[in-house]
Design a protein around this nucleic acid. Structure first.
Length: 475
DNA sequence: CCTGGAGTTGTCCTA
DNA sequence: TTAGGACAACTCCAG
């Protein structure tokens, strides 16, 4: 086997169910590579939490590959053809990505490889169905989720069964001067050790992903449909970062559901979890067919909406110091763990966009920087949905009241007390809105509003009405 | 081309 | 205390 087959790892950092990797292994001696390409990414370059995750993920993948993973830094449009040339690689394989900048870049690389007589092998390993597989009868993409899921996904050809990892990998011998760098010199870890607090919350890599799936199927899926709204309960899968980085494929998850005993889990829970996987697909389709999704409102009329520019309020939101306990709990969960429960993401996003009337793109940017599951498609589509300007978005009058939301979905206050410990001794009656608590109650709980915990930075009722008015004026 | 039904996640007021 | 309707109107989608 003299041929060299390059496999370019991107968002498919796993060995199992990786069709493009398998193909490479059939073709020749494997040269597994990763490129940190901030050059082509430009403004879409990864955020800080993503970089920490990637650092750990690459170290893990390298161990799985027996130390053969080679790392590069720079413009993939130059690095890939240069490697193909110096190794005389007969093929370069990769798993497709769907971000506009990557689509454009990958096309250019295909052209350059063609000129070098090196084959490009591009396969799906990250979606259940690729964007062009799910279309309406008239050939255009869906804009409404429910028919996308029911009609589009569920009546399409079912996702392929997962593939095993390659049994035995033959590696190509590496060249000493091919530009590869050490992991540390990719500079993925932040200067201040902010990431250290996230470490205990995640088991990064392929094995961690399958453990997370296992745990969810055993402990979380039963009761998922209703339990998923309660941030203190273990009824969300927390698989999002693993899916984003490709430590697990959606096919593996889909088929793990299929493999469960009939009747073990109520159908409503299974269906709902499948629909959440389909939301991920829907977001990817939206981004694929709307390249400006992260910067431009999908519905044009929202472009004229005037946002408030209040840096102090934005910082308070980012730091979890808004004085609204459920909002602060969510923002602190994000900062401490790199993750936020889905219900709480909606609450904090609604608060930023509707109550603080801050441009959704500023929220999007913060999530992009701090989430370990930061994903261009999911992040952009979801912020647009909350802001009301996205596909099939919430009606403008649907504004979350963070006090009611907390009373409803964190009734015992477990979640708030965990992340806002300075309020832990307040009785439930006042925990969700401490500014209404009588002075003796506050002092018994050791709370001094404005000192140990902020007063609300905005009046919920008045800001709600102002948002209603601003949004109403659009139509 | 026309038509009818429907659209992730809510809140508030009134009777 | 609780349940029901208003909040808007428009676009999407399938038949």
């Amino acid at each position: 086997m003299n041929d060299v087959a390059i496999h370019w790892f991107r968002q498919d950092l796993r060995l199992s169910d990786n069709p493009a990797l398998c193909k490479a292994c059939e073709r020749g001696g494997l040269l597994p590579i990763y490129i940190l390409d901030d050059v082509t990414a430009g403004p879409d370059a990864m955020g800080a939490a993503s970089r920490w995750w990637l650092h750990e993920a690459l170290a893990m993948l390298n161990r799985q590959l027996g130390g053969h993973l080679r790392l590069y830094r720079g413009d993939a449009r130059q690095i890939i053809p240069a490697l193909a040339k110096s190794y005389g690689a007969s093929s370069v394989s990769w798993t497709r990505c769907y971000e506009p900048w990557r689509v454009k870049r990958d096309k250019e690389i295909v052209d350059r490889l063609q000129a070098l007589n090196s084959e490009s092998i591009r396969l799906n390993g990250s979606l259940l169905w690729e964007p062009w597989d799910i279309k309406k009868q008239d050939g255009t993409p869906y804009k409404v989720f429910t028919p996308f899921f029911r009609k589009g996904c569920l009546q399409a050809i079912p996702p392929a069964a997962p593939m095993a990892a390659p049994e035995k990998i033959e590696y190509a011998s590496a060249l000493a001067d091919d530009g590869a760098v050490a992991l540390a010199s990719l500079g993925l870890l932040p200067d201040i050790a902010w990431h250290e607090q996230m470490v205990p919350h995640w088991d990064i890599g392929e094995e961690g992903a399958s453990k997370a799936l296992e745990r969810f199927l055993e402990e979380g899926l039963n009761g998922y449909k209703s339990g998923r709204d309660f941030p203190s309960l273990p009824h969300v899968s927390r698989l999002s970062p693993y899916l984003h980085w490709g430590h697990i494929s959606p096919n593996q998850i889909w088929h793990a559901l299929e493999a469960l005993e009939e009747g073990d889990i109520p159908a409503r829970d299974m269906d709902h979890f499948r629909s959440e996987l389909a939301w991920r697909e829907f977001s990817h389709s939206l981004l694929y067919y709307n390249q400006d999704l992260a910067t431009k409102p999908l519905q044009n009329k929202f472009a004229q909406l005037e946002w408030r520019d209040d840096p102090v309020a934005l910082t308070a939101w980012q730091k979890g110091k808004t004085g609204i306990p459920i909002v602060d709990a969510g923002m602190r969960e994000l900062w401490q763990t790199g993750y936020m429960h889905n219900r709480v993401r909606m609450i904090v996003a609604s608060f930023l966009v509707k109550n603080l009337r801050t441009d959704w793109r500023k929220g999007e940017a913060w999530f992009w920087d701090t989430l370990v599951d930061a994903d261009l498609a999911n992040n952009a589509a979801s912020w647009q949905w909350v802001a009301g300007c996205g596909a099939d978005a919430a009606p403008y009058f649907r504004i979350f009241n963070p006090v009611l939301q907390a009373e409803k979905f964190d009734p015992e206050g477990h979640y708030i007390r965990r992340f806002v410990p300075e309020l832990a001794s307040l009785p439930n009656k006042y925990l969700f809105q401490p500014w209404t608590a009588p002075e003796p109650v506050l002092s018994r709980a050791g709370v001094t509003l404005g000192q140990t915990y902020p007063l609300p930075i905005v009046d919920l009722k008045a800001s709600r009405e102002a948002a209603l008015e601003a949004y109403h004026a659009l139509s």
